[in-house]
């Protein structure tokens, strides 16, 4: 098992600090979910981890070897970014096949046959210009490049943005298939949490340029609960625990709780339910004004 690690990463754009002392460890052979709000720093983190963007401070290594400008490390990684229909010079007139040819040239393990299959599956006209593609097709191209790269560590940034539900399901199936067959490492950053949550063996939550949690998804959720009932009873039962997003309707109060260990026995008089990853994340984000995650 290999480790892609980032230590004490700081990334500044001018005066703005986008990543604040990030420490992250990616173990190969797992599917990771990277979740965070818009502007939390997901893309920047991924850019820095893959040496596509220099870190202001910090070290990024793969098995102890630096990633920056290092052929050995870079050949094991694929970071497939969102395509943009415009460039700073006008519409993006690259054709899909230009991207595919470049991918073929630079990804060591590029699988052309697999790429062809996927192009057919997603029904892409490779002679079409990127600026003329729908959002869904652009996402599809991103996915095709990521999967066909056959890179040991494959990173997808918002791969399902713009895909309809049928295409999304297709995508999840493809990831599962590929992972089952090859055990490749996938890091998927997404907003559409609930659909993909059960895919993630480990989840990384980033907020405001800091990593708040990076844990085994199941263990993480096992210690999250939704507590509801009489306001006083709820407060008593959740004393000393990390409480998020308290909501009240009359005397009824609902809170989301993250305990230190799972299966806590809560006091009588409160209803205890499990929380989905999406709802937990939502509760953490809408903590409005209270302490950060």
């Amino acid at each position: 098992m290999s480790v892609l690690s980032g230590k004490n990463i700081v990334k500044k754009y001018g005066k703005e600090t986008v990543l604040k002392n990030v420490n992250i460890e990616i173990e190969t052979g797992k599917i990771y979910g990277l979740i965070g709000r818009n502007g939390a720093g997901k893309t920047t983190l991924l850019s820095v981890l893959t040496a596509q963007n220099p870190a202001t401070k910090g070290e990024i290594t793969l098995d102890g070897n630096p990633v920056w400008e290092n052929e050995k490390s870079l050949s094991r990684i694929c970071y497939s970014r969102e395509l943009s229909p415009v460039t700073m010079f006008g519409p993006n007139n690259f054709k899909v096949k230009d991207y595919l040819n470049a991918a073929k040239a630079f990804y060591v393990n590029w699988d052309g046959e697999y790429a062809k299959e996927l192009v057919k599956l997603f029904n892409i006209d490779i002679k079409k210009k990127i600026s003329k593609l729908s959002k869904g097709m652009m996402s599809a191209v991103t996915i095709i490049i990521a999967l066909a790269s056959k890179a040991e560590i494959t990173i997808l940034d918002e791969p399902v943005a713009g895909l309809d539900v049928v295409a999304r399901e297709q995508f999840y199936k493809l990831i599962i298939e590929e992972y089952s067959e090859t055990g490749r490492t996938f890091i998927i950053s997404t907003h559409i949490i609930e659909e993909a949550a059960s895919l993630f063996e480990r989840v990384i939550i980033i907020d405001n340029g800091e990593i708040k949690f990076q844990e085994n998804t199941e263990e993480f959720l096992a210690r999250a609960y939704r507590i509801s009932g009489d306001a006083d009873a709820v407060d008593k039962a959740t004393e000393g625990l990390k409480v998020y997003h308290p909501e009240s309707l009359g005397r009824n109060k609902v809170v989301t709780v993250l305990a230190d260990k799972p299966d806590e026995n809560f006091a009588e008089g409160v209803q205890v339910e499990a929380v989905s990853l999406q709802n937990l994340f939502y509760a953490m984000c809408t903590n409005e004004g209270r302490e950060a995650m």
């Binding site: 089952s180 067959e181 895919l199």
Partner: peptide, 15 residues
């Protein structure tokens, strides 16, 4: 198989 199960329920094969 785990692969079939994971594809059917769209869950992580390890799970």
């Amino acid at each position: 198989s785990t692969t079939e199960l994971s594809k059917f329920y769209k869950i992580n094969p390890a799970t």
